[in-house]
Amino acid sequence: MPNIDIAPRTFFSRLALAGMACAVMVPIAACNNRQNRSEAPMNASTQAAEAAAPQRKLNNHPTKAYEIRVKLANAPGAFETIDGAAQFDVENPGECGNVDPVIGAIPRITSNEPIALKKVSDTEYAGVIYLDQIVDEDYFGRAVCRWGLAEARVVLKATNDPANTRFIFGLPAEKVIAGGQETRYFWSGYYPRAKMDAFRDLGDADMEKVPADKRGEFFSMTLSAKEIAS
């Protein structure tokens, strides 16, 4: 395993090691289903997301619109790369999907649709997703596949350099639909990169483990959603 850049302080180790192990050894979804319920790369480009997408049809006239906002506080520097994706999963793959001839089971059907995030201030970005972005249809000749939003997520990088740290945060579908929000805290020491190239930082939901005099070394990312007219 490459040498991982972690601070020598014990509390940094406790906060970071679990996330590092998950990012290195297993899919993120197995570690924290609030962050990533998809096996696709979280910072995939639009072209890559489309290439990896399963058989699905996009709705030309979606109506169920939600605005997603990303707000930063105490950021250690600029983020030139801010990508967003709305992950959709088929809710009834067992009814409508095809059996994989290799594993003899019906795999999960999931798709990541890009979110175009625009800068609205020095610390805030916004984009729109549609709950009905993918058409429910009989794609495999078995039954109608019902698509549902799993989460809206973002990944921030200091620059487009692939070695830079990826700061990753996702808002689950239930929070999106309820017009809710969540805040996650990230250690600024991983900006712009850790010694481990392309390190994925999932952040932490609270600061309880961090001594009060060290909390200034963290920045926060808040994701919020609200329903808007389409």
Rank of each mutant, 00 (worst) to 15 (best):
T222I: 06
F186H: 11
K175N: 11
F186C: 04
K214R: 12
E182G: 04
G189M: 10
T222E: 13
F167Q: 04
G203K: 01
F218N: 01
R184F: 06
G216T: 06
K175C: 01
G170P: 06
F167N: 03
M207W: 03
P172M: 05
K209A: 14
F218E: 01
I168N: 03
A212G: 03
Q181E: 15
K195A: 14
R215H: 09
T222N: 09
R200T: 11
R215C: 06
A178E: 13
E182Q: 14
G180E: 08
A198R: 14
G170C: 07
M207H: 04
F199Q: 11
L171M: 11
Q181Y: 10
G189K: 05
G170F: 05
R200E: 15
V210G: 00
Q181G: 06
E208T: 14
Y191C: 05
A194H: 08
F167H: 04
M196I: 03
D206L: 04
G179T: 09
F218D: 01
F219H: 12
G203N: 05
K175A: 14
R215G: 07
M207N: 01
D206K: 10
E217D: 15
A212C: 01
P172Q: 10
R193Q: 12
E182W: 03
S188L: 03
F199H: 14
A178H: 04
T222M: 07
L171D: 05
